[in-house]
Write a protein that binds this DNA or RNA. Structure first.
Lengths: 196, 196
DNA sequence: CTCGGAAGTAAACAACTGTTGACGTACGGG
DNA sequence: CCCGTACGTCAACAGTTGTTTACTTCCGAG
């Protein structure tokens, strides 16, 4: 073999930082904050525990960093343009939870660490998410009725994602994006669709 | 005052057991399993920590007991008869989360301890809940399509309950039962209502 | 009254948690 | 080639966790 077993075993702060971040996001999303130990994360990332404190100051700091990157992913992957596209987006986000592990940021939104600052980030994401969704449905500031409906929609999506990722409830667990599309579409158009 | 400050300070195993159970349900629901310590529970109940091990063998045992009593509450309070009543039931369950703390069993359904047996109980509750709901919509065994829709409905309800109880997201947080009734009704009738 | 057992308490335990400081070691500019 | 410095490891720390053991206190049957 010409390539070494691990392509990059060389020292690279940015790379190990990233490895820690990804391992942490996976653990925090699937097990929650309190049930995840820093040694679990370090082992998953294949590095030493002490590096968590070095790069992120603390476990809380690492969690905040996870939320921040999750917010970035979220802003990047939810550039939905029209209300019609929303159901498909949500369906594929909720469906993809356990495949490539892509949208773990969804479940992270429901994981609290008890830390005030982390919770602010979390709620901030939820708030902008809701306002963006409401805007697609014709929301203008002050209309609490429609904003509530957007938040209910998000709560529903998060509930689906969480239930799929933390239980073995069938057929929900194994439902594909196509399976979810129909009920999710009905759900969203009913809540946000053409209002009277 | 004729009555003593604490009406029953006398030794009563059944009563302290019950106090532990209620304190545990509140803590587990609001903080999750891992973030809750047995000393927290014991202090809330006003008894000694050792009694948890005595009455429930372990912290896991206490959690299982919480799930069991939650299942009872759930069976008692979800005796919905017709599909038309379902939205109002769900709305008031999801709305009442933080008032009298009545339906904490809802949030418990989303709290995992990592223990296999406890998870079986949890998923069993979800399964029967879904099947009962699906039955109201005309489900017959083998119809995975409708069962999935029932599970999506439950996931949505749990998501609303969890978001309300673990964040300060407004206006969702302060929404009353009446506020929730309209979107929840739309949601349920859209997913479970008269199907084509 | 009394005494056996149940109810409750206090203290200690081993294991585990997050965090830190001192210590190696590889990398790359000189 | 060399060596400072950033990267990584190791081992220990203080505190907390769930659990157990020995002990005290209360109640009520005999």
């Amino acid at each position: 073999m010409t390539s070494s077993p691990t392509p990059t075993k060389r020292r690279d702060a940015a790379r190990t930082r990233q490895a820690l971040l990804e391992a942490a996001r996976a653990r925090f999303a699937s097990d929650g904050y309190a049930a995840t130990t820093v040694r679990d994360i370090a082992d998953d990332a294949g590095v030493n525990v002490a590096l968590i404190s070095r790069y992120f100051s603390s476990k809380e700091g690492l969690f905040e960093a996870c939320l921040t990157t999750a917010a970035d992913d979220f802003h990047r992957s939810t550039g939905a343009t029209t209300l019609n596209e929303v159901p498909e987006r949500i369906a594929e986000q909720a469906a993809g939870i356990d495949s490539d592990g892509v949208p773990r940021y969804l479940v992270l939104l429901l994981r609290s660490s008890g830390d005030a600052r982390a919770d602010e980030i979390r709620i901030g994401m939820l708030r902008t998410f809701a306002e963006r969704l409401a805007a697609l449905a014709g929301w203008e500031e002050g209309d609490d009725r429609l904003l509530l409906r957007a938040q209910v929609t998000i709560a529903a999506a998060l509930g689906i994602a969480l239930l799929r990722s933390t239980t073995t409830l069938e057929p929900l667990r194994s439902a594909t994006k196509e399976d979810l599309l129909s009920p999710v579409t009905d759900l969203i158009t009913a809540i946000l669709g053409n209002r009277a």
